[in-house]
């Protein structure tokens, strides 16, 4: 059935009234509110993710100030001072470790690890810490709140949350236990011993160098004598100092 002119007229009239009287005001008001809300949201998001972080004590090649703040906060919560090992997470220079670790990763994996750090820093929005201000960024929480947040991740019923926690703690632990002070305290620092010169050493240069940089000759060839190492022997030079 085809609609007659009267019908169109009524409909047109309704549309006209709506357009020129009440709707423009509502639209205008609504748009203003929408843009204000959007701008506020964006400003808050930008501030929350990027701004308000203290300047790191030293320069890093990869990690940003927000990641430094998070790693120090998470390191302190995971390995607090006064524990059984005379090295706290904050003193272990975990940002320095993460900087080197990230630099060694392929780009897509570097992005994934950095995304994980951001997830933990920002996820307090969805998984808040108990107490006042529990939705602040992880690095802005109190010591007790950080511990509670990490505990929530580690004991979550959601497999992916537990998995994310395991991944984060792996990064922190690698940095912490790789520190010379921790390794020496545990008496687990690698030992120092000479490497025998074998046929392969006459073939392969250091990575990045040319073969003409090889200084060994056949006269240098020797092999392991098989004498068991002394666990109390001298430790490797890279674990003798107090910095990684």
């Amino acid at each position: 059935m085809v609609a007659g002119p009267a019908v169109f007229g009524r409909r047109a009239g309704l549309r006209q009234d709506h357009r020129f009287e009440s709707r423009p005001e509502r639209l205008c008001y609504g748009r203003v509110v929408f843009w204000i809300l959007l701008a506020t949201f964006l400003a808050y998001t930008i501030w929350r993710i990027f701004l308000g972080y203290p300047q790191p004590r030293r320069a890093y090649r990869i990690v940003a100030p927000r990641e430094v703040a998070f790693l120090e906060a998470a390191g302190e919560a995971t390995f607090p001072a006064g524990g059984a090992i005379p090295l706290s997470g904050r003193d272990a220079d975990l940002p320095g470790y993460a900087d080197g670790f990230l630099e060694s990763l392929p780009r897509h994996l570097r992005l994934q690890v950095r995304a994980m750090l951001m997830l933990f820093e920002q996820a307090t929005i969805f998984f808040p810490a108990p107490g006042r201000g529990g939705r602040r960024r992880f690095s802005s929480l109190s010591e007790e709140q950080r511990v509670a947040v990490l505990d929530g991740w580690s004991r979550s019923r959601l497999f992916l949350r537990r998995l994310a926690f395991t991944a984060l703690r792996a990064v922190l632990t690698m940095g912490y236990l790789g520190h010379p002070i921790a390794m020496r305290h545990l008496r687990l620092a690698p030992l120092d011993f000479p490497s025998p010169i074998v046929e392969a050493d006459l073939l392969y240069p250091a990575i990045g160098a040319r073969k003409d940089s090889i200084n060994w000759t056949e006269a240098d060839l020797c092999e392991s004598d098989g004498t068991p190492l002394d666990p109390n022997g001298p430790i490797h030079p890279s674990f003798r100092g107090d910095e990684r």
Binding site: A77, T78, G83, A84, I85, D151, A182
Partner: peptide
């Protein structure tokens, strides 16, 4: 994590 983890280490 925390002191209990350091004790295990």
């Amino acid at each position: 994590f925390g002191h209990p983890l350091q004790e295990i280490f």
